[in-house]
């Protein structure tokens, strides 16, 4: 069920990016997609009732097997951090291109920004 909702969020973002006419809304749609994928990654490593993947003394005494079977997977969290940094970079670039385009054309409507065709 959470996976289905996550996929729904992804589809909402894709719909927004493909259908909307306003440049800023397209950017928002792309970011919603990005967050849906990040959420999916986090859910992959999540475990209900799991513990944080940090070993302390008590857990070492209780044995490695028990720690492995009860902790959440830390790798997707590292991946999500990287993905967030990347999407921050692309968001900044996209917004700055939007601003420059607005200065040139005086509109955010992509149906009016079309000098390139053919």
């Amino acid at each position: 069920m959470p996976y289905a909702l996550c996929f729904l969020l992804f589809m909402i973002g894709l719909y927004c990016a493909v259908v909307k006419k306003n440049m800023v809304k397209i950017v928002i749609g792309i970011m919603v997609m990005e967050y849906a994928v990040n959420l999916f990654l986090i859910m992959l490593g999540y475990r209900f009732g799991g513990v944080a993947p940090i070993i302390d003394k008590g857990q070492l005494e209780a044995g490695m097997e028990q720690f492995i079977s009860s902790s959440v997977d830390p790798l997707p969290q590292a991946l999500v951090l990287t993905a967030i940094v990347i999407s921050l970079g692309s968001l900044a670039l996209m917004i700055s291109i939007c601003i420059r385009t607005y200065e040139k054309y005086g509109t955010f409507d992509i149906t009016q920004i079309r000098r390139l065709k053919g």
């Binding site: 991946l79 291109i97 939007c98």
Partner: peptide, 25 residues
């Protein structure tokens, strides 16, 4: 023209990247 082309490229390129990230996940 350059800004328009860049925005178009960026939107489609970002969607492509997100698909790839989803597939990696």
């Amino acid at each position: 023209e350059e800004l328009e082309a860049s925005f178009k490229y960026m939107v489609l390129g970002s969607i492509g990247s997100i698909f790839i990230l989803f597939a990696v996940a």
